[in-house]
C-alpha cells in the first residue's frame, strides 16, 4: 500500500495532478446544480413577496 502512495517516487507529481482533476470535476458538478437551486429559490421568494403585496393592496382597497 505504501508503494502505491509513493508512485515510484513520483508521488509529488502524480497525486497533485489527480487531486486537481478531481477538484475540477466535483466543482463542475456542484456549482451549476447549486446555481439552478439558488435561482429557483430566489424566484419563489420574489413571487411570495409579490403575492403578499397584492394581498395587502386588496385589503387597503376594501377598507377604503
Amino acid at each position: 500500500m505504501t508503494d502505491f502512495w509513493q508512485m515510484g517516487g513520483y508521488a509529488l507529481y502524480v497525486w497533485p495532478s489527480y487531486a486537481l482533476f478531481l477538484a475540477v470535476v466535483v466543482y463542475w458538478l456542484v456549482a451549476p446544480w447549486l446555481e439552478v437551486k439558488r435561482t429557483l429559490r430566489k424566484m419563489k421568494q420574489r413571487k411570495r413577496r409579490q403575492h403578499a403585496r397584492a394581498n395587502t393592496g386588496e385589503q387597503h382597497e376594501s377598507q377604503a
Binding site: 502505491f4 508512485m7 515510484g8 517516487g9 513520483y10 507529481y13 502524480v14 495532478s17 489527480y18 486537481l20 482533476f21
Partner: peptide
C-alpha cells in the same frame, strides 16, 4: 491507478497521462 502497468521508460509518472 491500479490496473494499468508501469511504463518501461517513465515508470509511474506516466499515470498523469490519464488525467
Amino acid at each position: 491507478l491500479l490496473v494499468a502497468p508501469t511504463d518501461y521508460q517513465q515508470g509511474e509518472s506516466y499515470r498523469i497521462l490519464y488525467v
